[in-house]
Design a protein around this nucleic acid. Structure first.
Lengths: 257, 257
DNA sequence: GCTCGTCTGTGCGCTGGCGAACAAACATAT
DNA sequence: ATATGTTTGTTCGCCAGCGCACAGACGAGC
Protein backbone atom coordinates (compact mmCIF):
# COMPACT_ATOMS: atom_id res chain seq x y z
CA UNK A 1 0.00 0.00 0.00
CA UNK A 2 2.52 2.59 1.17
CA UNK A 3 5.32 3.11 -1.29
CA UNK A 4 7.17 5.81 0.62
CA UNK A 5 10.51 4.90 2.16
CA UNK A 6 10.15 3.38 5.57
CA UNK A 7 12.26 4.07 8.62
CA UNK A 8 14.45 1.05 9.22
CA UNK A 9 15.12 -0.11 12.73
CA UNK A 10 18.72 0.65 13.57
CA UNK A 11 21.17 -2.16 12.97
CA UNK A 12 18.83 -4.79 11.60
CA UNK A 13 18.07 -4.95 7.94
CA UNK A 14 15.25 -7.41 7.53
CA UNK A 15 12.83 -6.78 10.42
CA UNK A 16 10.68 -3.82 9.67
CA UNK A 17 7.60 -2.13 11.09
CA UNK A 18 5.69 -3.28 8.07
CA UNK A 19 5.98 -6.84 9.28
CA UNK A 20 3.07 -6.20 11.57
CA UNK A 21 -0.14 -5.73 9.68
CA UNK A 22 -1.61 -3.20 12.09
CA UNK A 23 1.51 -1.06 11.95
CA UNK A 24 1.53 -1.42 8.23
CA UNK A 25 -2.03 -0.28 7.81
CA UNK A 26 -1.73 3.12 9.43
CA UNK A 27 -1.21 6.26 7.45
CA UNK A 28 1.95 8.35 7.21
CA UNK A 29 0.68 10.89 9.68
CA UNK A 30 0.02 8.42 12.45
CA UNK A 31 3.14 6.56 11.58
CA UNK A 32 5.31 9.55 12.26
CA UNK A 33 3.89 9.89 15.72
CA UNK A 34 4.06 6.22 16.60
CA UNK A 35 7.15 4.83 14.98
CA UNK A 36 9.74 6.74 17.03
CA UNK A 37 8.44 5.04 20.17
CA UNK A 38 8.43 1.50 18.87
CA UNK A 39 11.15 -0.70 20.30
CA UNK A 40 12.08 -3.93 18.60
CA UNK A 41 12.10 -6.63 21.27
CA UNK A 42 13.13 -10.25 21.33
CA UNK A 43 10.45 -12.54 22.68
CA UNK A 44 11.95 -15.82 23.85
CA UNK A 45 9.79 -18.94 23.93
CA UNK A 46 7.74 -19.19 27.08
CA UNK A 47 8.24 -15.58 28.08
CA UNK A 48 5.27 -14.21 29.99
CA UNK A 49 4.32 -10.75 28.76
CA UNK A 50 1.48 -10.29 31.21
CA UNK A 51 0.44 -12.39 34.13
CA UNK A 52 -3.23 -12.60 35.03
CA UNK A 53 -4.27 -9.30 36.58
CA UNK A 54 -1.07 -7.45 35.79
CA UNK A 55 -1.40 -3.82 34.86
CA UNK A 56 0.00 -3.54 31.37
CA UNK A 57 3.04 -1.36 30.98
CA UNK A 58 3.22 -1.70 27.26
CA UNK A 59 1.67 -3.38 24.28
CA UNK A 60 3.32 -5.61 21.70
CA UNK A 61 2.99 -5.79 17.95
CA UNK A 62 4.42 -9.19 17.00
CA UNK A 63 6.24 -9.53 13.71
CA UNK A 64 7.49 -13.10 13.44
CA UNK A 65 6.54 -14.21 16.95
CA UNK A 66 3.30 -15.67 18.24
CA UNK A 67 1.75 -14.86 21.58
CA UNK A 68 -1.00 -16.90 23.18
CA UNK A 69 -3.59 -15.65 25.59
CA UNK A 70 -3.87 -18.43 28.10
CA UNK A 71 -6.35 -18.76 30.91
CA UNK A 72 -4.91 -20.68 33.83
CA UNK A 73 -7.39 -22.13 36.31
CA UNK A 74 -6.98 -22.54 40.02
CA UNK A 75 -6.06 -26.20 39.70
CA UNK A 76 -3.39 -25.40 37.13
CA UNK A 77 -5.29 -26.58 34.10
CA UNK A 78 -5.22 -24.15 31.24
CA UNK A 79 -6.90 -23.21 28.01
CA UNK A 80 -5.88 -21.00 25.15
CA UNK A 81 -8.28 -18.16 24.59
CA UNK A 82 -6.77 -16.59 21.52
CA UNK A 83 -3.60 -16.31 19.49
CA UNK A 84 -1.90 -13.15 18.31
CA UNK A 85 0.68 -12.97 15.58
CA UNK A 86 1.79 -10.38 13.08
CA UNK A 87 -1.80 -9.54 12.30
CA UNK A 88 -2.48 -8.06 15.70
CA UNK A 89 -1.55 -6.56 19.00
CA UNK A 90 -1.09 -7.97 22.47
CA UNK A 91 -2.65 -5.92 25.24
CA UNK A 92 -6.07 -4.84 24.05
CA UNK A 93 -7.29 -4.40 27.62
CA UNK A 94 -5.15 -1.31 27.80
CA UNK A 95 -7.16 0.67 25.30
CA UNK A 96 -10.45 -0.98 26.14
CA UNK A 97 -10.11 0.68 29.50
CA UNK A 98 -9.56 -2.32 31.74
CA UNK A 99 -5.78 -2.06 32.11
CA UNK A 100 -5.54 -5.77 32.88
CA UNK A 101 -7.15 -9.10 32.09
CA UNK A 102 -7.55 -12.27 34.10
CA UNK A 103 -5.42 -14.19 31.62
CA UNK A 104 -1.78 -14.74 30.83
CA UNK A 105 0.02 -13.66 27.68
CA UNK A 106 2.76 -16.13 26.88
CA UNK A 107 5.14 -16.40 23.95
CA UNK A 108 4.19 -19.48 22.00
CA UNK A 109 6.70 -19.08 19.23
CA UNK A 110 9.91 -17.16 19.79
CA UNK A 111 10.58 -14.15 17.62
CA UNK A 112 10.40 -10.41 17.66
CA UNK A 113 7.77 -7.83 18.42
CA UNK A 114 7.55 -4.08 18.55
CA UNK A 115 6.97 -2.84 22.03
CA UNK A 116 5.11 0.39 22.60
CA UNK A 117 4.84 2.09 25.92
CA UNK A 118 1.28 2.19 27.20
CA UNK A 119 1.23 5.97 27.49
CA UNK A 120 2.06 6.37 23.83
CA UNK A 121 -0.58 3.92 22.76
CA UNK A 122 -3.16 5.58 24.94
CA UNK A 123 -2.22 8.98 23.60
CA UNK A 124 -2.65 7.91 20.01
CA UNK A 125 -5.80 5.96 20.80
CA UNK A 126 -7.30 9.00 22.49
CA UNK A 127 -7.01 10.96 19.30
CA UNK A 128 -9.89 8.86 18.10
CA UNK A 129 -8.44 8.63 14.65
CA UNK A 130 -7.30 5.91 12.42
CA UNK A 131 -5.54 3.74 14.94
CA UNK A 132 -8.56 3.89 17.17
CA UNK A 133 -10.80 2.40 14.53
CA UNK A 134 -8.16 -0.06 13.50
CA UNK A 135 -7.72 -1.41 17.01
CA UNK A 136 -11.43 -1.69 17.67
CA UNK A 137 -11.93 -3.61 14.51
CA UNK A 138 -9.04 -5.88 15.37
CA UNK A 139 -10.59 -6.44 18.77
CA UNK A 140 -13.76 -7.54 17.09
CA UNK A 141 -11.80 -10.10 15.10
CA UNK A 142 -10.25 -11.30 18.32
CA UNK A 143 -13.68 -11.65 19.88
CA UNK A 144 -14.72 -13.84 17.00
CA UNK A 145 -11.70 -16.01 17.55
CA UNK A 146 -12.51 -16.37 21.22
CA UNK A 147 -16.13 -17.24 20.56
CA UNK A 148 -15.13 -19.89 18.09
CA UNK A 149 -12.62 -21.29 20.55
CA UNK A 150 -15.34 -21.64 23.16
CA UNK A 151 -17.57 -23.54 20.76
CA UNK A 152 -14.70 -25.66 19.49
CA UNK A 153 -13.72 -26.62 23.02
CA UNK A 154 -17.21 -27.84 23.56
CA UNK A 155 -17.85 -29.88 20.48
CA UNK A 156 -14.77 -30.92 18.57
CA UNK A 157 -12.28 -33.73 18.97
CA UNK A 158 -8.63 -33.34 19.82
CA UNK A 159 -7.80 -34.41 16.29
CA UNK A 160 -9.78 -31.55 14.84
CA UNK A 161 -8.57 -29.04 17.35
CA UNK A 162 -4.96 -29.90 16.71
CA UNK A 163 -5.53 -29.18 13.03
CA UNK A 164 -7.12 -25.87 13.87
CA UNK A 165 -4.27 -24.97 16.16
CA UNK A 166 -1.63 -25.85 13.61
CA UNK A 167 -3.36 -23.83 10.94
CA UNK A 168 -3.73 -20.81 13.20
CA UNK A 169 -0.04 -21.02 14.02
CA UNK A 170 1.14 -21.53 10.47
CA UNK A 171 -0.83 -18.51 9.30
CA UNK A 172 1.18 -16.40 11.68
CA UNK A 173 4.59 -17.69 10.69
CA UNK A 174 6.57 -17.29 7.51
CA UNK A 175 7.42 -20.86 6.59
CA UNK A 176 5.98 -24.28 7.18
CA UNK A 177 7.91 -24.92 10.37
CA UNK A 178 6.99 -24.53 13.98
CA UNK A 179 9.00 -25.14 17.13
CA UNK A 180 6.74 -26.53 19.76
CA UNK A 181 6.68 -29.62 21.93
CA UNK A 182 3.56 -31.70 22.20
CA UNK A 183 3.51 -30.97 25.88
CA UNK A 184 3.14 -27.25 25.19
CA UNK A 185 0.53 -27.78 22.52
CA UNK A 186 -1.41 -29.84 25.04
CA UNK A 187 -1.26 -26.93 27.49
CA UNK A 188 -2.60 -24.58 24.88
CA UNK A 189 -5.45 -26.83 23.90
CA UNK A 190 -6.11 -27.72 27.51
CA UNK A 191 -5.82 -31.45 26.90
CA UNK A 192 -3.48 -34.27 27.90
CA UNK A 193 -0.08 -34.52 26.32
CA UNK A 194 -0.86 -38.11 25.32
CA UNK A 195 -3.91 -36.92 23.46
CA UNK A 196 -1.76 -34.63 21.36
CA UNK A 197 0.77 -37.40 20.78
CA UNK A 198 -1.91 -39.63 19.45
CA UNK A 199 -3.48 -36.99 17.22
CA UNK A 200 -0.08 -35.88 15.94
CA UNK A 201 1.04 -39.39 15.10
CA UNK A 202 -2.10 -39.90 13.07
CA UNK A 203 -1.26 -36.80 11.08
CA UNK A 204 2.34 -37.89 10.68
CA UNK A 205 1.53 -41.38 9.46
CA UNK A 206 -0.87 -39.84 6.99
CA UNK A 207 2.02 -37.77 5.66
CA UNK A 208 0.39 -34.47 6.57
CA UNK A 209 2.93 -33.27 9.09
CA UNK A 210 6.35 -34.36 10.18
CA UNK A 211 7.81 -33.78 13.58
CA UNK A 212 10.53 -34.68 16.00
CA UNK A 213 11.36 -33.38 19.41
CA UNK A 214 9.69 -30.03 19.25
CA UNK A 215 10.02 -29.34 15.56
CA UNK A 216 6.90 -29.56 13.47
CA UNK A 217 6.66 -29.20 9.75
CA UNK A 218 3.52 -29.08 7.70
CA UNK A 219 3.79 -31.09 4.50
CA UNK A 220 0.22 -31.14 3.24
CA UNK A 221 -1.67 -28.09 4.26
CA UNK A 222 -4.78 -28.69 2.16
CA UNK A 223 -5.28 -32.04 3.83
CA UNK A 224 -4.81 -30.38 7.20
CA UNK A 225 -7.62 -27.99 6.35
CA UNK A 226 -9.79 -30.83 5.22
CA UNK A 227 -9.40 -32.67 8.52
CA UNK A 228 -10.04 -29.53 10.51
CA UNK A 229 -13.36 -28.52 11.96
CA UNK A 230 -15.19 -25.55 10.54
CA UNK A 231 -13.82 -23.33 13.30
CA UNK A 232 -10.65 -22.40 11.51
CA UNK A 233 -12.40 -21.38 8.32
CA UNK A 234 -15.05 -19.36 10.12
CA UNK A 235 -12.48 -17.30 12.00
CA UNK A 236 -10.34 -16.85 8.92
CA UNK A 237 -13.24 -15.70 6.82
CA UNK A 238 -14.47 -13.28 9.46
CA UNK A 239 -10.96 -11.88 9.98
CA UNK A 240 -10.54 -11.37 6.27
CA UNK A 241 -13.85 -9.57 6.15
CA UNK A 242 -12.87 -7.27 8.99
CA UNK A 243 -9.35 -6.68 7.74
CA UNK A 244 -10.44 -5.94 4.24
CA UNK A 245 -11.46 -2.53 5.43
CA UNK A 246 -7.89 -1.81 6.44
CA UNK A 247 -6.56 -1.80 2.92
CA UNK A 248 -9.40 0.38 1.67
CA UNK A 249 -8.83 2.85 4.41
CA UNK A 250 -8.10 6.29 3.00
CA UNK A 251 -5.35 8.12 4.85
CA UNK A 252 -6.92 9.74 7.84
CA UNK A 253 -10.27 8.34 6.80
CA UNK A 254 -12.93 6.91 9.02
CA UNK A 255 -14.53 3.51 9.18
CA UNK A 256 -17.88 4.78 10.27
CA UNK A 257 -19.76 5.96 7.24
CA UNK B 1 -26.10 8.37 41.57
CA UNK B 2 -28.30 10.77 39.62
CA UNK B 3 -30.88 12.42 41.80
CA UNK B 4 -32.43 14.58 39.13
CA UNK B 5 -35.92 13.71 37.95
CA UNK B 6 -35.85 11.18 35.15
CA UNK B 7 -37.95 11.17 32.01
CA UNK B 8 -40.51 8.40 32.33
CA UNK B 9 -41.37 6.30 29.37
CA UNK B 10 -44.82 7.23 28.19
CA UNK B 11 -47.64 5.07 29.47
CA UNK B 12 -45.70 2.69 31.62
CA UNK B 13 -44.93 3.52 35.16
CA UNK B 14 -42.51 0.92 36.37
CA UNK B 15 -40.13 0.26 33.49
CA UNK B 16 -37.60 3.01 33.25
CA UNK B 17 -34.37 3.77 31.41
CA UNK B 18 -32.57 3.40 34.68
CA UNK B 19 -33.29 -0.29 34.67
CA UNK B 20 -30.37 -0.76 32.35
CA UNK B 21 -27.09 -0.08 34.05
CA UNK B 22 -25.39 1.36 31.01
CA UNK B 23 -28.21 3.77 30.38
CA UNK B 24 -28.20 4.62 34.03
CA UNK B 25 -24.52 5.42 34.14
CA UNK B 26 -24.45 8.12 31.48
CA UNK B 27 -24.55 11.79 32.34
CA UNK B 28 -27.44 14.20 31.85
CA UNK B 29 -25.93 15.64 28.72
CA UNK B 30 -25.61 12.35 26.90
CA UNK B 31 -28.93 11.25 28.26
CA UNK B 32 -30.73 14.10 26.61
CA UNK B 33 -29.36 13.14 23.24
CA UNK B 34 -29.97 9.43 23.60
CA UNK B 35 -33.19 9.01 25.52
CA UNK B 36 -35.57 10.43 22.92
CA UNK B 37 -34.55 7.69 20.51
CA UNK B 38 -34.93 4.77 22.86
CA UNK B 39 -37.91 2.55 22.16
CA UNK B 40 -39.19 0.16 24.78
CA UNK B 41 -39.58 -3.22 23.13
CA UNK B 42 -41.01 -6.53 24.22
CA UNK B 43 -38.67 -9.43 23.74
CA UNK B 44 -40.55 -12.74 23.65
CA UNK B 45 -38.79 -15.92 24.63
CA UNK B 46 -36.83 -17.41 21.76
CA UNK B 47 -36.90 -14.27 19.66
CA UNK B 48 -33.83 -13.96 17.46
CA UNK B 49 -32.45 -10.41 17.52
CA UNK B 50 -29.64 -11.10 15.12
CA UNK B 51 -28.90 -14.14 13.05
CA UNK B 52 -25.30 -15.04 12.32
CA UNK B 53 -23.92 -12.58 9.79
CA UNK B 54 -26.86 -10.19 9.91
CA UNK B 55 -26.09 -6.53 9.63
CA UNK B 56 -27.36 -4.98 12.82
CA UNK B 57 -30.13 -2.44 12.42
CA UNK B 58 -30.29 -1.54 16.06
CA UNK B 59 -28.88 -2.35 19.44
CA UNK B 60 -30.73 -3.41 22.57
CA UNK B 61 -30.36 -2.41 26.18
CA UNK B 62 -32.16 -5.14 28.16
CA UNK B 63 -33.94 -4.21 31.35
CA UNK B 64 -35.60 -7.32 32.72
CA UNK B 65 -34.85 -9.59 29.78
CA UNK B 66 -31.84 -11.76 29.08
CA UNK B 67 -30.26 -12.25 25.70
CA UNK B 68 -27.79 -15.01 24.89
CA UNK B 69 -25.13 -14.92 22.26
CA UNK B 70 -25.21 -18.37 20.79
CA UNK B 71 -22.87 -19.88 18.30
CA UNK B 72 -24.56 -22.45 16.11
CA UNK B 73 -22.33 -24.89 14.28
CA UNK B 74 -22.86 -26.42 10.88
CA UNK B 75 -24.19 -29.65 12.35
CA UNK B 76 -26.69 -27.76 14.48
CA UNK B 77 -24.91 -28.13 17.78
CA UNK B 78 -24.62 -24.91 19.67
CA UNK B 79 -22.79 -23.18 22.47
CA UNK B 80 -23.48 -20.07 24.44
CA UNK B 81 -20.75 -17.51 24.10
CA UNK B 82 -22.00 -14.87 26.47
CA UNK B 83 -25.07 -13.57 28.24
CA UNK B 84 -26.37 -10.02 28.31
CA UNK B 85 -28.85 -8.67 30.78
CA UNK B 86 -29.62 -5.31 32.30
CA UNK B 87 -25.92 -4.71 32.84
CA UNK B 88 -25.15 -4.47 29.16
CA UNK B 89 -25.95 -4.01 25.54
CA UNK B 90 -26.65 -6.40 22.68
CA UNK B 91 -24.91 -5.55 19.43
CA UNK B 92 -21.37 -4.56 20.29
CA UNK B 93 -20.18 -5.44 16.79
CA UNK B 94 -21.95 -2.34 15.59
CA UNK B 95 -19.68 0.09 17.34
CA UNK B 96 -16.62 -2.11 17.14
CA UNK B 97 -16.82 -1.59 13.43
CA UNK B 98 -17.75 -5.05 12.26
CA UNK B 99 -21.48 -4.49 11.75
CA UNK B 100 -22.16 -8.21 12.21
CA UNK B 101 -20.93 -11.27 14.06
CA UNK B 102 -20.94 -14.93 13.20
CA UNK B 103 -23.24 -15.70 16.11
CA UNK B 104 -26.90 -15.54 16.96
CA UNK B 105 -28.51 -13.29 19.56
CA UNK B 106 -31.51 -15.04 21.06
CA UNK B 107 -33.86 -14.07 23.87
CA UNK B 108 -33.23 -16.45 26.73
CA UNK B 109 -35.63 -14.89 29.17
CA UNK B 110 -38.60 -12.90 27.97
CA UNK B 111 -38.89 -9.29 29.04
CA UNK B 112 -38.25 -5.80 27.82
CA UNK B 113 -35.35 -3.94 26.32
CA UNK B 114 -34.70 -0.48 24.99
CA UNK B 115 -34.02 -0.51 21.31
CA UNK B 116 -31.82 2.13 19.77
CA UNK B 117 -31.43 2.63 16.07
CA UNK B 118 -27.92 1.90 14.90
CA UNK B 119 -27.39 5.34 13.42
CA UNK B 120 -28.11 7.02 16.74
CA UNK B 121 -25.76 4.73 18.60
CA UNK B 122 -23.05 5.28 16.03
CA UNK B 123 -23.55 9.02 16.20
CA UNK B 124 -23.18 9.12 19.94
CA UNK B 125 -20.32 6.66 19.89
CA UNK B 126 -18.49 8.79 17.35
CA UNK B 127 -18.48 11.72 19.74
CA UNK B 128 -15.82 9.80 21.60
CA UNK B 129 -17.25 10.85 24.90
CA UNK B 130 -18.64 9.14 27.87
CA UNK B 131 -20.70 6.49 26.15
CA UNK B 132 -17.74 5.58 24.04
CA UNK B 133 -15.63 4.76 27.06
CA UNK B 134 -18.51 3.08 28.77
CA UNK B 135 -19.19 0.74 25.89
CA UNK B 136 -15.57 -0.16 25.41
CA UNK B 137 -15.23 -1.02 29.02
CA UNK B 138 -18.37 -3.09 28.90
CA UNK B 139 -16.97 -4.88 25.89
CA UNK B 140 -13.92 -5.73 27.90
CA UNK B 141 -16.12 -7.27 30.57
CA UNK B 142 -17.86 -9.27 27.89
CA UNK B 143 -14.53 -10.49 26.57
CA UNK B 144 -13.70 -11.75 30.03
CA UNK B 145 -16.96 -13.62 30.15
CA UNK B 146 -16.29 -15.23 26.81
CA UNK B 147 -12.79 -16.25 27.77
CA UNK B 148 -14.04 -17.83 30.93
CA UNK B 149 -16.74 -19.64 29.01
CA UNK B 150 -14.13 -21.13 26.72
CA UNK B 151 -12.10 -22.40 29.65
CA UNK B 152 -15.19 -23.63 31.48
CA UNK B 153 -16.33 -25.57 28.42
CA UNK B 154 -13.01 -27.29 28.37
CA UNK B 155 -12.56 -28.29 31.97
CA UNK B 156 -15.70 -28.30 34.04
CA UNK B 157 -18.50 -30.78 34.54
CA UNK B 158 -22.10 -30.28 33.52
CA UNK B 159 -22.98 -30.03 37.19
CA UNK B 160 -20.65 -27.12 37.68
CA UNK B 161 -21.62 -25.42 34.47
CA UNK B 162 -25.29 -25.59 35.28
CA UNK B 163 -24.57 -23.80 38.54
CA UNK B 164 -22.61 -21.15 36.71
CA UNK B 165 -25.37 -20.72 34.18
CA UNK B 166 -28.06 -20.40 36.83
CA UNK B 167 -26.05 -17.85 38.74
CA UNK B 168 -25.37 -15.78 35.64
CA UNK B 169 -29.08 -15.81 34.86
CA UNK B 170 -30.25 -15.02 38.37
CA UNK B 171 -27.90 -12.04 38.54
CA UNK B 172 -29.68 -10.59 35.56
CA UNK B 173 -33.21 -11.07 36.85
CA UNK B 174 -35.05 -9.46 39.71
CA UNK B 175 -36.30 -12.41 41.70
CA UNK B 176 -35.32 -16.01 42.25
CA UNK B 177 -37.38 -17.39 39.39
CA UNK B 178 -36.48 -18.29 35.86
CA UNK B 179 -38.62 -19.64 33.04
CA UNK B 180 -36.56 -22.06 31.05
CA UNK B 181 -36.89 -25.66 29.99
CA UNK B 182 -34.06 -28.09 30.46
CA UNK B 183 -33.98 -28.57 26.74
CA UNK B 184 -33.16 -24.90 26.22
CA UNK B 185 -30.59 -24.86 28.97
CA UNK B 186 -28.95 -27.82 27.29
CA UNK B 187 -28.79 -25.86 24.04
CA UNK B 188 -27.15 -22.96 25.79
CA UNK B 189 -24.58 -25.09 27.49
CA UNK B 190 -24.08 -27.17 24.38
CA UNK B 191 -24.81 -30.45 26.16
CA UNK B 192 -27.48 -33.14 26.07
CA UNK B 193 -30.86 -32.48 27.60
CA UNK B 194 -30.48 -35.62 29.71
CA UNK B 195 -27.28 -34.27 31.14
CA UNK B 196 -29.10 -31.18 32.33
CA UNK B 197 -31.94 -33.29 33.73
CA UNK B 198 -29.48 -35.27 35.77
CA UNK B 199 -27.59 -32.25 37.06
CA UNK B 200 -30.81 -30.40 37.84
CA UNK B 201 -32.33 -33.28 39.74
CA UNK B 202 -29.23 -33.48 41.88
CA UNK B 203 -29.67 -29.82 42.75
CA UNK B 204 -33.36 -30.31 43.41
CA UNK B 205 -32.96 -33.28 45.69
CA UNK B 206 -30.32 -31.32 47.59
CA UNK B 207 -32.94 -28.61 48.12
CA UNK B 208 -30.95 -26.00 46.22
CA UNK B 209 -33.38 -25.41 43.42
CA UNK B 210 -36.94 -26.38 42.65
CA UNK B 211 -38.37 -26.74 39.22
CA UNK B 212 -41.22 -28.05 37.14
CA UNK B 213 -41.97 -27.85 33.49
CA UNK B 214 -39.91 -24.87 32.59
CA UNK B 215 -40.07 -22.97 35.85
CA UNK B 216 -36.99 -22.87 37.96
CA UNK B 217 -36.63 -21.35 41.37
CA UNK B 218 -33.46 -20.95 43.34
CA UNK B 219 -33.88 -21.75 47.02
CA UNK B 220 -30.33 -21.81 48.30
CA UNK B 221 -28.10 -19.49 46.39
CA UNK B 222 -25.04 -19.74 48.63
CA UNK B 223 -24.98 -23.48 48.15
CA UNK B 224 -25.30 -22.96 44.41
CA UNK B 225 -22.22 -20.77 44.51
CA UNK B 226 -20.38 -23.34 46.53
CA UNK B 227 -21.04 -26.08 44.02
CA UNK B 228 -20.07 -23.84 41.13
CA UNK B 229 -16.69 -23.75 39.51
CA UNK B 230 -14.49 -20.72 39.93
CA UNK B 231 -15.64 -19.36 36.57
CA UNK B 232 -18.65 -17.53 37.90
CA UNK B 233 -16.73 -15.75 40.62
CA UNK B 234 -13.90 -14.75 38.32
CA UNK B 235 -16.23 -13.12 35.82
CA UNK B 236 -18.25 -11.46 38.56
CA UNK B 237 -15.19 -10.05 40.21
CA UNK B 238 -13.73 -8.76 36.98
CA UNK B 239 -17.06 -7.21 35.97
CA UNK B 240 -17.32 -5.49 39.31
CA UNK B 241 -13.83 -4.15 38.90
CA UNK B 242 -14.60 -2.79 35.46
CA UNK B 243 -18.00 -1.42 36.39
CA UNK B 244 -16.75 0.26 39.49
CA UNK B 245 -15.34 2.96 37.28
CA UNK B 246 -18.84 3.75 36.02
CA UNK B 247 -20.05 5.07 39.31
CA UNK B 248 -16.96 7.15 39.87
CA UNK B 249 -17.28 8.65 36.47
CA UNK B 250 -17.67 12.42 36.72
CA UNK B 251 -20.24 13.82 34.33
CA UNK B 252 -18.56 14.26 31.00
CA UNK B 253 -15.35 12.88 32.45
CA UNK B 254 -12.92 10.50 30.88
CA UNK B 255 -11.71 7.08 31.87
CA UNK B 256 -8.27 7.59 30.50
CA UNK B 257 -6.25 9.48 33.03
C1' DG C 1 -63.80 -35.61 31.37
C1' DC C 2 -60.15 -36.87 27.77
C1' DT C 3 -56.46 -36.06 24.36
C1' DC C 4 -52.42 -34.35 22.74
C1' DG C 5 -48.20 -32.08 22.99
C1' DT C 6 -44.58 -30.76 25.90
C1' DC C 7 -41.46 -31.58 29.52
C1' DT C 8 -38.89 -34.59 32.53
C1' DG C 9 -37.01 -39.20 34.20
C1' DT C 10 -34.47 -43.48 33.38
C1' DG C 11 -31.88 -47.05 31.43
C1' DC C 12 -29.10 -48.97 28.11
C1' DG C 13 -24.36 -49.53 25.51
C1' DC C 14 -20.55 -46.82 23.51
C1' DT C 15 -16.56 -43.91 23.16
C1' DG C 16 -13.37 -40.01 23.68
C1' DG C 17 -10.60 -38.29 26.72
C1' DC C 18 -8.43 -38.69 31.46
C1' DG C 19 -4.82 -40.16 34.90
C1' DA C 20 -1.03 -42.79 35.89
C1' DA C 21 2.88 -45.47 35.01
C1' DC C 22 6.47 -46.75 32.24
C1' DA C 23 9.44 -47.54 28.03
C1' DA C 24 11.89 -46.01 24.14
C1' DA C 25 14.09 -42.53 21.24
C1' DC C 26 16.72 -38.61 20.91
C1' DA C 27 19.85 -34.28 21.99
C1' DT C 28 23.28 -32.19 24.49
C1' DA C 29 26.94 -31.58 27.57
C1' DT C 30 30.66 -33.54 29.84
C1' DA D 1 31.23 -42.41 24.29
C1' DT D 2 28.48 -41.89 28.14
C1' DA D 3 25.29 -39.96 31.05
C1' DT D 4 21.39 -37.07 31.78
C1' DG D 5 17.35 -34.79 30.81
C1' DT D 6 13.82 -34.10 27.53
C1' DT D 7 10.51 -35.59 24.24
C1' DT D 8 7.56 -39.00 22.39
C1' DG D 9 5.15 -43.67 22.35
C1' DT D 10 2.21 -47.15 24.53
C1' DT D 11 -0.78 -49.37 27.66
C1' DC D 12 -4.65 -50.00 30.92
C1' DG D 13 -8.47 -49.09 33.75
C1' DC D 14 -11.90 -45.53 34.46
C1' DC D 15 -15.67 -42.33 33.84
C1' DA D 16 -18.27 -38.31 32.08
C1' DG D 17 -20.94 -37.42 28.60
C1' DC D 18 -23.15 -39.05 24.23
C1' DG D 19 -26.95 -41.02 21.35
C1' DC D 20 -30.93 -43.56 21.50
C1' DA D 21 -35.19 -45.32 23.07
C1' DC D 22 -38.95 -45.12 25.76
C1' DA D 23 -41.88 -44.19 29.90
C1' DG D 24 -44.13 -41.32 32.94
C1' DA D 25 -45.95 -36.69 34.32
C1' DC D 26 -47.97 -32.62 33.68
C1' DG D 27 -50.91 -28.85 31.46
C1' DA D 28 -53.71 -26.62 28.05
C1' DG D 29 -57.51 -27.05 25.14
C1' DC D 30 -61.49 -29.34 23.36
Amino acid sequence: MFKKPEPKCEGCESPCFQDNLLLKAISAEVRERIYPHLKLTELPLGDVLYESGDVMESVYFPTNSIVSMLYVMEDGRSAEISVVGNEGIVGIALFMGGLSTPSRAIVQSAGQAYRLDSKHLKAEFSRHGELHHLLLRYTQALITQMAQTAACNRHHSIDQQLCRWLLLSMDRLKGDQLDMTQELIANMLGVRREGVTEAASKLQSAGIIQYQRGHIRVLDRPELERRCCECYAVVKKESDRLFEAFSYLPEGGSFHS
